[in-house]
Amino acid sequence: MSHTLKTALGVIALIALAAVGYFGLADNLAFMTQVVIMMIFVLSLDYVLGYAGISTLGHAAMFGTGAYAAAIFATSVSSDPILGILAGAVAGGAIALLSGFVLMRAHGLTLLMLSIAVTEVLHELANKYSGITGGADGLSFTPGPILGRFEFDFAGHIAYIYSVCLLLLVFIKLRVLTASPFGLAARGIRESQARMRAIGTPVYWRMLLIYTFGGAFAGVAGALSAQTTALVSLSVYDFQLSAGAVLMLILGGTGQLWGAILGTMVYMTVHQIASSVDPFNWLFIIGAMVLIVVYLVPNGLMALPALLLRWRRK
């Protein structure tokens, strides 16, 4: 099956999935929209962590910056949501580029710690400059109609459809990017940086570019989150957001895009159900689920069918 056909089938599957959510959970579209936004965020993480092997626990830095950029852009430049998304992408990419100059020189635990530190610094900056960001109160704004026609409605229909459209765009873009020579280089960097240098690749600069692209996609997710809730608060820089995204990716499986989508869907659904059943101990259920999956299917839920097939053959 050709790559284009696989991408087309993937898009159809995503549309079908979105339609099931739209019609099946019509009274819970706000939650469904959050799932779609997280899918975009985890896809961006998959590109950085799953494909290029860049360990990070600070992906929220780009998400949060994208969210603030969209909100500030809407209040001071234009309320057009598409332009706001572009502003979020540019801001997310810019913060990844700036922090990447330092981060991409580090490895392993140092890289993890530095990525957390960058997010914490941004969190404090957002808190300190409350005149721009709204500080602890948050920054509320009213996004304009999409393409000048589609107003965000109270029930969340437009927000959901708009989010799904952006998810499809990000998915297609990442499919193209990961299949390109640049995507192959990312996989090469994940497998062996020493070998990449030995074939003449300027590894540091390539990693910086990968991190910047990943940051731009995370910025899109952040901007979308801001627009669909019409509010940005300091929580966009929460460590839990970065850590949760890593968990969702591990749950679904890294380096294959679909793992990011499946992992997000399962994690957020279980989270939603568990927290409504037991608002105090829902983390226990999430933790147990992750433990079981990682123990039984170390490569994530995407590897489950192959594993079941192997068990059946035995």
């Binding site: 996989r187 497998e191 003449g200």
Partner: peptide, 26 residues
């Protein structure tokens, strides 16, 4: 030191693309 999870063909594709300066294409 190889790209262990990649196929032999992909391992060879990487240096060939890099030599031609095409490994940065998107």
């Amino acid at each position: 030191t190889l790209f262990k999870a990649l196929t032999v063909r992909e391992n060879l594709r990487l240096p060939l693309l890099e030599r031609r300066g095409w490994l940065g294409r998107l």
